[in-house]
Every structure is written in structure tokens, then in C-alpha cells.
Design a protein around this nucleic acid. Sequence first.
RNA 1: GCUGGUGUAGCACAGUCGGUAGUGCAGUUGAUUCGUAAUCAACAGGUCGAAAGUUCGAGUCUUUUCACCAGCUCCA
Length: 639
Amino acid sequence: MKITINEIVYEVADGLSAYDAAKAAGIALSRDILAAEINGKTSDLTSPVKDGDVVKLLTFEDEGGAHTFRHTASHVLAAAVKRLYPETKLTIGPAIENGFYYDFDSETAFTADVLEKLEAEMKKIVKENAKMERFTLPRAEAVEFMKNEPYKVELINDLPEGEEISFYRMGDFTDLCAGPHLFSTGAIKAFKLTACNSAYWHGDSKNKALQRIYGTAFPKKEDLDAYLQKLEEAKLRDHRKIGKDLQLFMTDDLVGRGMPMFLPKGYTLWRILENYIRDKEIASGYQHVLTPCVGTVELYKTSGHWEHYQNNMFPAMNVDEETYVLRPMNCPHHMRIYANSRHSYRNLPVRIGEIAHDFRYEASGTLKGIERGRHFCQNDAHLFVTPEQIKDEFAKVVDLIFTTYKDFGITDYRMVLSLRDPADKVKYHDDDEMWNTAENALRDVLNSLGLKYTEEIGEAAFYGPKLDVNVKPAVGAEYTLSTCQLDFCLPAKFNLTYIDKEGKERTPVVLHRAILGSLDRFMAYLIEETMGAFPLWLSPVQVEVLPISDDHVEYANKVKDALAAAGINRVEVDDRNEKIGYKIREAQLEKVPYMLIIGAKEVEEGTVSVRSRRDGELGSMKLDEFVAKAVKEVETKER
RNA sequence: GCUGGUGUAGCACAGUCGGUAGUGCAGUUGAUUCGUAAUCAACAGGUCGAAAGUUCGAGUCUUUUCACCAGCUCCA
């Protein structure tokens, strides 16, 4: 038969496995080869190949290779668990990015010391170097074979008719598994169980909480060590740690959980962000409003938020004859502002923006510093447009997102077209026609703008589909920074109208959008990206002037004034009676971008000795020269 | 909310077998007036997250509770 291996066509005997075919073709097969991609599908090396197949041999460098490697590692873990805790019930154990996990149902709590024991057992299993043998069984026999594993039986029963029910045997351990796997367990040289947490069976919080053991595995120990090192370093970026160290924000039990408070330095950064985005919006034709943090329950019943999110709102309060809630969202307020005046097609789009405080009763386990609190501030806006204006307005929002990202140096993001799950009639406003219109309109807009995006089902807002821009922080899970949502639903619920060319009343379409998302979350993102070393235009303290002794304080203050006159107004003079090295160390730890050392020489010459946070000593500069340099750096938002 | 873990001074952490709480940095005061990441000394700082219990005696053991951390679920 003729088969293609790594893009070269070979003539080999019939009925060989991928591995044997490669061997027969005279390809040198090292231990680095972990799996084979056969016609695009990652498979066991021992999988049979047939005439015309296209085979790629996979190493750990290939996603499929790493995946196979770590999937086998998860079986080794499961085998170790069954040996030490035989009463444990198995569920699933896939490879994931950077590692693998396996979910177990066990009476034993898999604490840190248990994980150590499991690692030791895994080492033994790896040493035994058992072959991974695949076999299949008919459904009835498969169920019988797994009769002591209720979760596996459920998985078998859920497999569609006609699908092969495959098992992998590895010494004394056999698991229901679609594969693929390594030849044998011996290749798993370097692994580490990193955590044990909980996860719900089938990912549904109504189901039993299982124990999920996370691990990672590499063919080489150096790579494992480097990875673990990277994880440790990532922890140092945590915005909660940096926010505390740099005095940006705090939390307080007496104030309440999920209610962070911004300290002077943090609020300085906040104010810069707020001014930045508001000015940018004004330049883009937005009008800003200020609306209250409470609204009547009726308001949210009208919008549908009450029906959909009642459980995630702070409980209603009764005042006089009325019931109020802390607002979780600003759309209804803005809808009512739109309805406050008559609108013609001539004055659309109407763009209403607000830096708005919102309160959501988030589940306690989801709170995370300023990334997710129960109070937060949205960079919200609602654009009321005619159907013909959707595309242009959407393009403008996307442009706003991109130019903002450019200013903040955000390059690593992913765009998602979030669609409804048509089967879920509870979560989403039930109107198929509306959804088809909205989703198609949004898809058309994205395509015509040439944006690259992935579609995700069941991620839409209850009132419409959205474009989400997601980022992945150094630590933790991906989250949404910016969003733009297309809404054919709420305008009708609020009976919003405009008068069209023919003088007829029409219903506008609304774009809900947030560029910085929530200011809180955006700040968390900035902190983690910069590790608190903000660029000059964002730094709460831009310049620290450090006089060497009391004699130089007067000139230091003049330097401060000169900077302030040029608009560099977040400058501090450290006139404490401390040695210069001490002051530098403190300013450096506070991540102040520039330190200006002032001594007798500087006073005499009218210069400043410049030290940069990043590059160290820059030497002596005329005061004017430094002011100009700093001004330029702020203007260009240099990083 | 769920499962597991962690709470000792402003911060980072010790505290053994249950015997009445310590180190470093930060802080305060004094001295020092100094050239590119820590001057010296003294002082002060704690209901050991909170409450109850066991005990002659609890930071340490038990229970409850609160907060935090990891992950899951959720995120209009």
C-alpha cells in the first residue's frame, strides 16, 4: 500500500500499524515519537493504517503528541488511585492545556499528603512500563465489564449507537477510553500532581461534587521544572498581592466581602482610566449621564433582568409602597432616558454612556479581588440606532476597542461571537425570529469587518448575541474585557421609538457595549500585565524627586514645580532624612518610573540625575530636557 | 453556592508534647546630612480571625462561625 508519512509517500506492505509502517519505510523512530496523526486525527502509534492514509508522526512539540502523553499520564494517576484507594469510583480524565486532570468520586479527601503518596505510586507504575493495550467490547459486555464503576456505565450508555466502545489496559488497570495513548507508561519521566479541587459530574452544579486531581507531565525533568518555575512566577503577578503591596486597594470585613475600596494611589489610576475613556467617548459622539444605583423592581421586571437574574441581585428593599433593588445593570435606566424625549431618524444614533456603579450578588466562591467583586463600575454605553446604522455603529465600537487596546498595549486577545443555545428557552428571551435576525445581523457585521472570531453557543446575553473580547491573564481563567451586544429585545420591551423618513414610528435597535469592561477588572488586568510597573502616563506617582540632603530640598521642589507646569503633576519629593540609597530602594519598590537624584552638582548646574525604574542610571540631564522627555513619554503613552 | 485548604503584629513568617507569644522588615523617637536598591540605637506594636467547649491551663485539641485561597458552577 501507499501511505504518506510526514509528507513523503512510501510504498509498504499491507496491514501495518502506523509505527510499523514508518519503520518499514525506513524512518528512524526515536522515543520522541509519541503518537500518530492519521488523516488529521490523533491516534495511537499502534493504530492500523491503510492504503492512501496520510500520517504525521507526533512528538511532544505537537499539540496532539503532548495531549496523548498527558492523557496517558492521567491513566497512570487513575491506576495509582485505584491501587491505594480501591473504593474510589472513576469518572473522566482528559489532557488539558499544560497538563491533565482526572475526576474521582471518593470518600477519601485527596489532601496534599495523599497527592504525595499518589505520586510515589505513579512513579512505580511508570517504572513497571506496562504496555497500553486497546480493545473494544460490545455495549452489553462493556457495561458488564465496568459494572463496579457507575460513572463509566453511565458514559457507556451515553455513547451513541454504532460508536466503538474502547478500553485501554495497562498492566492491572483498565479504563474506558477513546484514546489515543502512548505505547507504554515508561515514557512519562517527569510529572507532578499540582492540585486537588472539586468539580461537578458533567459540569453541572446540581450533580455530585467530585474530586479533581490536576497534574502535569513532561518527557524531560528540565521542562517540568521550568514549567513549575513559571507557575511560581505567575503567582507574583496576582493583582491582589500587588494591589496590597502598592497600596492600590484594600478589602475590609466590616465593609463587606466583594466590596473592594480604592486607596489614593489606586483611585489615581482609576481616575486616569475614567478620564481616558470618557474623553475618548465624547470625541466619538457619546453623551454621558448619571443615574442612581437603585431602581424599582418594576424597572427590572420590564427589562427582563428580574426574571433572569433575580437570584444574583441583592435582595429587594421595601420603601413606602414600593420595592427597590440595588441595580445590577444600567440598561433599563438608559432605556428610560432615551424614552424621555422624542427621537427622529435624523438624530440617531443616540449614544448614552455612563461610568456606572453596579451591585451583583455574586456567588461567594467567585469573588476575586477587583477582578470580580459584588460592587463594580462599568464603562457602559447604549447606542440607539436604526437597523441601517447597526453596521457602522458596530464598526465604530470595534474601532474604539482596538484603538484603546493599542494605547494600553493589549495584543493578546481572542474574539468570540457569543450565541444563544436555541434549546435553552429559559435562559434566553424566547423569540426565534428575533434571535435569527440578531445573530445573522451580527455575524454579517463581523464578517464584513473582516474580524477573526470563534462562535460559542450558549454564551449570549438573554436579550441578544454579542461580540466578546477575551484576554487570558498570567494567572487564572480567561475573562471578557470588552463586549458589544446587539439587542432587538429590550427596545421593544420599553416601547422605545423613533420617527422614520415616512413619519412612522419605528423601534430602534440597541448596541450595549463596554470598552474597558468594568474599570475594576480592567485595572486588575493592567496590574497583572505590568506587575504594577505602570507606564508613565498611568503611574500613580510618575516621578520621585530625591534630594541628597536638606540643602537640596528647595531645588527639588522647584523641579517638582517645573514638572507640574508641564503637566507632569504626580510628582513627590522625598525630603525625609534618609540616605539616598534608601530612598532609591523605596521608590524602586514602589515602581515609580523615574527617580531624580538632586545633589549639590544638580543644584549648581540646573540639572537632574535621572534614574529609570527599568533601565537604572541614565546620567545627568538639563531639567528642561528631562521635562520634555517625560512630556513626550506621557503623550505617546510609551510603555 | 459546592469540594478541599489556610487564618499568629501593617507586611513576610517561626512557635516542638497543651504550660500564658517571637524573628525580620515596616512604624515611632533620638542621633546621623549622606551621590544611585536597606545608617545606627532605643522604643512601641498581638483578645493568635470570632464564639463556644474540653482542661488546673488552649495559638496548639473539639464544635460552630467569619474571612481568605484553589478549582467547579455562574458572570445580564
